[in-house]
Amino acid sequence: MENVTLKVEGMSCGHCVSTVEKAVNEAGASGKVDLAAGQVAVEFDAAKVSLASIKEAIENTGFDVV
């Protein structure tokens, strides 16, 4: 398992947190958002899902991964 922290811009509320966490989970990874820091800690199996696809899943919800 790999762990990475992604900086996500545009999150401002609980709904944003759940949207980003759901996107990460649906991409095949596990994510925990820190709203105050504007980050999501992601744990994933690189043999099953790529970091690029996780970033794309987040961006497809309207947030920017920087």
Rank of each mutant, 00 (worst) to 15 (best):
A46S: 15
I58H: 04
V40F: 04
T61Q: 14
A52N: 12
S12K: 11
D64V: 14
A47M: 07
T61R: 14
N60M: 05
I54F: 02
L35C: 09
V42S: 06
S50I: 06
T5C: 01
V8Q: 10
H15G: 15
K22T: 11
D34Q: 06
V20P: 04
E56R: 13
E9A: 12
E21F: 00
C16D: 04
H15K: 08
D64M: 12
N3H: 05
K48P: 07
G10P: 07
C16A: 11
K22V: 00
V8F: 06
M11I: 08
D45M: 01
I58F: 03
E43H: 06
A57P: 12
F63G: 08
D45C: 01
D64T: 15
L51W: 02
E2K: 13
E56P: 01
K32V: 15
V17G: 05
C13A: 10
F44T: 08
S53M: 09
D34S: 12
F44M: 04
E43D: 13
A36G: 12
T5Y: 00
V4L: 01
V17D: 01
E26L: 11
S53I: 00
D34M: 09
T19H: 00
G14E: 09
N25R: 13
V17K: 04
A36F: 11
G62K: 07
A36Y: 10
A52R: 08
D64W: 00
S50Q: 06
T19R: 06
G62Y: 05
A36E: 15
S30Y: 11
V66I: 13
D34Y: 02
G28Q: 10
K48D: 14
T61V: 08
G28C: 11
